[in-house]
């Protein structure tokens, strides 16, 4: 499969992004973006508004051909893209899936994303895929296991990856570390970056009774390179990370704290279901910008 030639507009976007790197090193700062979903393909191309970049779900485009790749190429001409996977299963005790990695690498070669991310979790074991972001026990054993696998993935992709914190509903008796200590240790030891999902921090904090501010304070500033903002659903006892609702006030408040701590970080709204008109997501994105930019200006 040939690589789509980069039109000048795309090349300019990338060039501009590459010149405004954060303290995290070579990865570019992209501004304010959205998760690309089929429901918004046409409206986003017709009216991109102030959307500066897009995050694509890697697995949706790890296909041989057809319409998904046609759309992907269209967006690649207009926006800087980043790849976000859900099936790397970096924490599984099953072997890494070589076919998956090869397809992931091929997609990265095709669209040249600004970066590639997945989740700090496992999605299956014993050959069964649960299609969920299952939490890990925060143990030295799990730490060693994940670090070695992140290094292998980064060697295969020839780039540093970002790992995202997941929302969780269980925690394990064996855990010796807090979630943030575990995430920070993996980033440092594997030399990978962090995609901090602000909603997931809040959801897990509520479900496990820890402080979301302690979480933020425990994450090294230099490792955070992307924020996700999303919504959740109130359950009977727990709050459920549905990513199908507007960003809550509690998450907006936590986002402000995150901007204060981490500074200028590429930020996006991630909606996975119950899709509103694109304008509503753009309004949320604009709200993020309005919250962050004054703080960033004051800090500068």
């Amino acid at each position: 499969m040939s690589t789509c030639p980069a039109p000048s507009s795309y090349a300019n976007n990338v060039a501009m992004a590459m010149t405004s790197t954060t303290s995290s090193g070579a990865l570019p700062y992209l501004g304010y973006g959205l998760g690309l979903r089929v429901e918004h393909y046409e409206s986003l191309l017709a009216n991109p508004g102030q959307v500066e970049w897009l995050e694509v779900v890697s697995e949706n485009y790890m296909v041989s051909g057809g319409l998904p790749l046609v759309w992907l190429d269209r967006f690649r001409e207009r926006f800087p893209l980043v790849m976000h996977g859900v099936s790397l299963s970096i924490g599984s005790t099953d072997p890494l899936d070589d076919d998956y990695l090869a397809r992931l690498a091929a997609l990265a070669q095709r669209i040249e994303p600004a970066w590639v991310s997945d989740h700090l979790c496992w999605t299956g074991v014993q050959g069964v895929n649960l299609h969920d972001l299952m939490p890990l026990p925060y143990t030295e054993e799990a730490l060693d296991h994940v670090v070695s696998r992140v290094k292998r993935v980064q060697d295969t992709l020839k780039r540093r990856i970002l790992l995202e914190n997941v929302s969780s509903y269980v925690s394990f008796a064996d855990s010796q570390l807090t979630e943030w200590e575990f995430l920070a240790a993996i980033a440092e030891r594997a030399d990978c970056m962090i995609l901090l999902d602000i909603n997931n921090v809040h959801v897990s904090a509520m479900n496990h009774g820890f402080s979301s501010l302690d979480y933020l304070r425990g994450i090294p500033v230099s490792r955070v390179h992307q924020f996700h903002l999303a919504g959740y659903e109130e359950g009977e006892k727990l709050i459920i990370d549905t990513h199908d609702a507007p960003v809550s006030n509690a998450v907006w408040d936590l986002y402000v704290e995150a901007v204060r701590r981490f500074g200028r970080v590429s930020t996006m709204i991630e909606r996975d279901d119950n899709f509103p008109p694109l304008a509503e997501l753009m309004a949320e994105l604009e709200h993020a910008r309005q919250l962050a930019e004054p703080l960033l200006r004051d800090a500068a």
Binding site: H131, V170, S171
Partner: peptide, 26 residues
Amino acid sequence: NAIRSDDIADVESRLAIYRHGYRIRL
């Protein structure tokens, strides 16, 4: 015994979220 229970929710309620999610997604 691997999963912690606490005042927020019991183990069964916590696991039920994953079990429900698996079936719904498929």
